[in-house]
Design a protein around this nucleic acid. Structure first.
Length: 586
RNA sequence: GCCCCGGUAGCUCAGUCGGAUAGAGCAACGGCCUUCUAAGCCGUGGGUCAGGGGUUCGAAUCCUCUCCGGGGCGCCA
C-alpha cells in the first residue's frame, strides 16, 4: 500500500507543478513513512515541509494545496494536515483487508518482490582458514551472511553465495607440519610440539588417518627433523623462525609428493568438516572458491602484471610494491616478497579482480571486524586496476564475545581451547543460534552468554516467536477436533467483523512485512526482521489472550481464522529468511 | 600516534531518509489458567540518549571537539 500512496503524492506534486504552485525543475523525492502514533493516521509524509522553501510558502499552506490535488482512492479514508505540516493518511478498512487476502493467496511468496530485477549479486562470507573447525566467532558471520543473502534473494536479486578457501599460504603449511609432527609422534618419535603449531585434537585425527594410510613409511627421526632448526620460544628462540624451519625440513624430508599429500589430507579433512558444519547450520553455498586456483590459472600473475602495466608498482629492497597510497591507502603494500613469493594480498587483489570480472552487479564481502584495515587496500587495488571499487561492499561483523559463568571466554584456534560452532549448535540448537546471531546489527559488539543461551532457553526470543506459530497451528488442530472447518472465502467475505483494536494492530503489522523485508535487505540488516517478528508475535499473543478464535458465530470465526492463518504465514516466511524453523508444536 | 566500531532504563539492546510524547526484553513489584498451549497475557516503577558546541522549522539520529570501552595498524594469513 505504500507504493500506492507514493503515487498519489507524486501525482499531486505534478499537478501543482503544472499549476505553477511549485517550480517544475526541483528534485522531488516522495518521503512516506509509517506513522508511529495511530492518531497520526497510518502513513505520514513530510513532503510539504521539504518542499516549502522551493514553493516559497508556509509548510501548512503547501500541505493544503497538495492534499487538494491528491487523486481520490478507495484505499484512503481521509487525509489530514497536522503539526508543522505533516500530511497524514488514514487508510480505509478495505485497504487492510486486501492485505490479508494477499497473504493468504501468495503464501510463501508474500513479502517477496522483484525489486532486484534478477541482477546478479555475490555474497562471500565466513571464508575461515581451513586450519581448524569453525568456532563461535565464525558462527556470527555464517548466520549473518546467510540471512543477508536470503534477504537479497527475497527482493529479487540473483544471489551467489561463496566461500573463499584459503588453501594456500603459510597457515596451511603450519597445519601440514603440525599433522606430520603428530604423525611422527604416533610412529613413536618423541618431540617437543612447536608453540606455533596447531594443537587441536583434530590434528591428531588427521595424523591418525595419515598413519592408517602409510603405517610408519613416512617416519623420520625427530632428531633429523629438528636438526639445525632455530629453537622455539620456550628455549629462548623465535617461534616464527622455529615453525618456518620445521615446515622447510618437513617438506624436504617428506618430499614434494608426500608433503603435498599430507597438506591436502589436512585441507580436505578440515574443509569437509567445515562444509558439514555449515550445512548442518542451514548455511548453504553455491561456490567454494580456491585461493590456490588463482595462482594455478595465472590470475595472480595477471593482476600483478596489470598493476605494473598501469604504472602502479615499483621495486624496493628486492620486493615488488603496489603504490596503494595513490588510491587512498595509508601506506604502500608489498605484493611480491623478496623471496619471490606473492603475498596473501596479491591473491586477494586477483580474487577481487576475478569477482568483478564475473559480472556481478554488486559484490558483498562479509569480514570479521579485525580485517577492517584491509578494506582501503583492496579498494585501492580495484581502483588501480581501473575497476569500479564501489561495486564492492565490505560489511564488517564485530566479534561475538562469549561469556561463560560471567567470565569472558578466550578463544584461540591454535591452543585448541575454543568453543566450536558445532558445540554451540548442539548446546543451544540451530534455531536459537541462528536467531541470536542476527538479533543485533553487525557493527554492534555482541555479548553471547553461553549459560543463558544453554540453560534458559525460554529467555530466548526465538521461542517466543515460534510459540506464536505453534499456537496458531494448535488452534487449527482444535478446530478439526471440534469437527469444524475453516471456510476461507467466508472469512474473506466477513473481514468487516474484525473490528477489535488487537485485530487492527495485527493487520497493520502484517501489512508492514514486505517493507521490513525490503529495508532489511537493502541495508543488510537482518536484525530489523528479527525485531519485527518479535513485535508481531507479541501482537499475536496479546490477541490470543484477549479473544477467543473458535467462537460459535461462523462468520466471525472464519474471519479471525483468516487473520491468524495470515499471521502464521508471515511468521513462517520471516523465520525462514533467518534460517529458523517454524514448528507446529512446541 | 593513526584508523574502524560502540556509549540510549539496573542489565542486554531497538530506534527507518533528521519528525510529532525515546521503546522492547530480562531483572523488580502486583495481578490473570474450569475456557483455542501460562514457552503466554495485563499492570506498576525505572531516562542528563556519555559530555560540550554547531547545523535547522525540528537532533538519540547530521557535523565538530572531549571523555570512556572494544578492535585493528607486518615483506603474517
Amino acid at each position: 500500500m505504500k507504493p500506492l500512496l507514493s503515487q498519489l503524492l507524486a501525482s499531486a506534486v505534478s499537478s501543482l507543478q503544472t499549476q505553477g504552485d511549485l517550480p517544475a525543475d526541483i528534485p522531488v523525492t516522495i518521503n512516506l513513512e509509517r506513522a508511529r502514533d495511530r492518531r497520526h493516521g497510518d502513513f505520514a509524509s513530510n513532503l510539504a515541509m521539504v518542499l516549502c522553501k522551493a514553493a516559497g510558502t508556509k509548510p501548512r499552506d503547501l500541505a493544503q494545496k497538495l492534499v487538494a490535488a491528491l487523486p481520490a482512492s478507495d484505499q484512503v479514508e481521509k487525509v489530514e494536515i497536522a503539526g508543522p505540516g505533516f500530511i497524514n493518511f488514514f487508510l480505509s478498512n478495505s485497504a487492510w483487508h486486501a492485505t490479508l487476502g494477499q497473504i493468504l493467496q501468495q503464501q510463501a511468496r508474500y513479502g517477496r518482490s522483484d525489486l532486484g530485477a534478477g541482477k546478479p549479486v555475490q555474497v562471500e562470507f565466513v571464508s575461515a582458514n581451513p586450519t581448524g573447525p569453525l568456532h563461535v566467532g565464525h558462527g556470527r558471520g555464517a548466520a549473518y551472511g546467510a540471512s543477508v543473502a536470503d534477504l537479497l534473494e527475497a527482493i529479487g536479486y540473483q544471489v551467489q553465495r561463496e566461500y573463499y578457501v584459503n588453501d594456500a599460504g603459510r597457515q596451511m603449511d603450519i597445519l601440514a607440519t603440525s599433522v606430520y609432527l603428530r604423525y611422527l609422534d604416533l610412529c613413536g618419535e618423541t618431540l617437543d610440539f612447536p608453540v606455533n603449531g596447531y594443537k587441536g585434537d583434530y590434528v591428531w585425527d588427521i595424523a591418525a588417518s595419515l598413519h592408517r594410510r602409510h603405517g610408519d613409511a613416512l617416519r623420520v627421526s625427530a632428531d633429523s627433523l629438528f636438526a639445525d632448526v632455530p629453537v622455539d620460544e620456550p628455549q629462548g628462540g623465535d617461534k616464527e623462525a622455529h615453525i618456518d624451519g620445521l615446515i622447510e625440513r618437513s617438506r624436504n624430508l617428506l618430499g614434494e609428493k608426500h608433503y603435498r599429500e599430507t597438506f591436502d589430507l589436512g585441507l580436505e579433512t578440515i574443509l569437509g568438516d567445515i562444509r558439514r558444519d555449515l550445512e548442518g547450520f542451514g548455511v548453504h553455498y553455491d561456490t567454494w572458491f580456491s585461493e590456490r586456483s588463482l595462482t594455478e590459472n595465472g590470475s595472480v600473475q595477471r593482476a600483478i602484471e596489470r598493476l605494473g602495466e598501469a604504472g602502479h608498482t615499483y621495486e624496493e629492497n628486492g620486493a615488488l610494491w603496489f603504490r596503494s597510497t595513490d588510491f587512498g591507502d595509508e601506506k604502500d603494500r608489498v605484493i611480491v616478497r623478496d623471496n619471490g613469493q606473492t603475498t596473501y594480498f596479491a591473491s586477494d587483489i586477483a580474487y577481487h579482480m576475478h569477482k568483478l570480472e564475473r559480472g556481478y552487479e554488486r559484490v558483498i564481502d562479509i569480514w570479521g571486524a579485525d580485517h577492517h584495515g584491509y578494506v582501503p587496500r583492496v579498494k585501492a587495488a580495484l581502483r588501480a586496476l581501473g575497476d569500479d571499487a564501489d561495486r564492492l561492499d565490505v560489511l564488517l561483523v564485530q566479534f561475538a564475545i562469549l561469556y561463560r559463568g560471567g567470565e569472558r571466554v578466550q578463544m584461540s584456534t591454535r591452543s585448541g581451547e575454543f568453543v566450536t560452532l558445532r558445540e554451540l549448535r548442539q548446546e543451544v540448537g540451530n534455531d536459537a543460534a541462528r536467531f541470536f546471531y542476527v538479533m543485533r546489527k553487525c557493527e554492534q559488539h555482541m555479548d553471547f552468554d553461553l549459560d543463558l543461551a544453554k540453560s534458559e532457553s525460554s529467555d530466548n526470543p526465538v521461542y517466543y516467536i515460534q510459540y506464536a506459530h505453534a499456537r496458531v497451528a494448535s488452534v487449527f488442530r482444535q478446530l478439526a477436533e471440534k469437527g469444524l472447518s475453516w471456510d476461507r472465502d467466508n472469512g474473506t467475505a466477513h473481514l468487516a467483523r474484525l473490528n477489535e483494536s488487537h485485530e487492527d494492530a495485527l493487520l497493520i503489522s502484517l501489512s508492514r512485512y514486505p517493507e521490513v523485508v525490503e529495508t532489511a535487505a537493502l541495508s543488510h540488516e537482518p536484525h530489523q526482521l528479527a525485531h519485527f517478528l518479535r513485535d508481531l508475535a507479541n501482537e499475536f499473543h496479546t490477541y490470543y489472550n484477549a479473544h477467543q478464535f473458535l467462537v460459535e458465530d461462523a462468520d466471525l470465526r472464519d474471519a479471525r481464522l483468516n487473520l491468524i492463518a495470515a499471521t502464521r504465514q508471515v511468521i513462517a516466511n520471516g523465520l525462514g529468511l533467518l534460517g529458523v524453523g517454524a514448528p507446529d508444536r512446541m
